[in-house]
Amino acid sequence: MNKLMRRNYTYGMLLPGALLYVLLFIVPSMGSFYFAFTDLTDFDFYSARFIGWDNFKSLFDAEESMLSLQNTIVFTIVTTVFKMALGLALALLLNMKLRTTLYLRTVFFFPVILSTVAVALAFSAIYHPTTGLLNQSLRLIGLDSLAQEWLTNTKLVMYSISAVEVWKWTGMGMVLFLAGLQSIPLDAYESATIDGASAWQKFRSITLPLLLPSIKSVFFLSMIGGLKVFDIVIALTNGGPGKVSRTLNYMVYEDFSKQYYGEGTAANLILFLLILVTMAILNLFISRKEVEM
Rank of each mutant, 00 (worst) to 15 (best):
M1K: 09
N2D: 06
N2K: 12
K3T: 11
R6P: 00
R7T: 13
N8M: 05
T10M: 06
Y11A: 06
G12V: 04
G12K: 05
L14E: 02
L20V: 12
L20A: 12
L23Q: 03
L23C: 12
V27I: 15
S29D: 02
S29Y: 01
G31T: 09
F33R: 02
F33M: 13
F35D: 09
A36V: 08
T41H: 12
F45W: 04
R49Q: 14
F50H: 04
F50P: 11
N55P: 02
F56L: 14
K57P: 01
F60C: 02
F60R: 03
S68F: 06
L69C: 03
T72I: 05
V74M: 08
V74T: 09
I77Y: 04
T79P: 00
T79K: 05
T79I: 09
V81H: 01
F82V: 07
K83W: 00
M84W: 00
A89L: 12
L94G: 04
M96V: 13
M96R: 14
T100E: 01
T101G: 06
Y103V: 15
T106P: 05
F108Q: 00
F109Q: 02
L114T: 11
A118C: 06
A118V: 10
V119I: 01
A120R: 01
A120F: 01
F123H: 02
A125I: 15
I126T: 09
I126Y: 10
P129E: 06
L134D: 03
N135H: 01
R139G: 13
R139I: 12
R139N: 11
G142N: 10
L143A: 05
D144S: 10
D144E: 08
Q148W: 05
E149Y: 08
W150S: 08
L151H: 07
L151R: 08
K155I: 08
M158I: 15
I161P: 01
S162H: 03
A163P: 02
T170D: 04
G171F: 05
M172F: 10
M174N: 11
L176V: 15
L176P: 10
A179I: 08
Q182W: 00
Q182I: 08
I184F: 03
L186S: 14
A188M: 09
S191A: 13
I194Q: 01
S198L: 11
S205C: 11
L208P: 13
P209H: 02
L211I: 07
P213W: 01
P213D: 03
S214I: 09
I215D: 01
S217R: 00
S222Y: 03
L227R: 11
K228W: 01
V229P: 01
V229W: 00
F230K: 02
I232V: 11
V233L: 13
I234H: 11
N238G: 14
G242V: 08
T247P: 05
L248F: 07
L248P: 03
N249F: 11
Y250G: 10
Y253S: 10
D255M: 15
F256K: 08
Y261D: 03
G264H: 11
G264T: 14
G264F: 12
T265P: 02
A266T: 06
A267Q: 06
L271H: 02
I275Y: 00
V277P: 09
T278R: 00
M279N: 14
A280Q: 10
L282N: 09
S287D: 07
R288T: 04
E290M: 15
V291S: 10
V291L: 10
M293V: 12
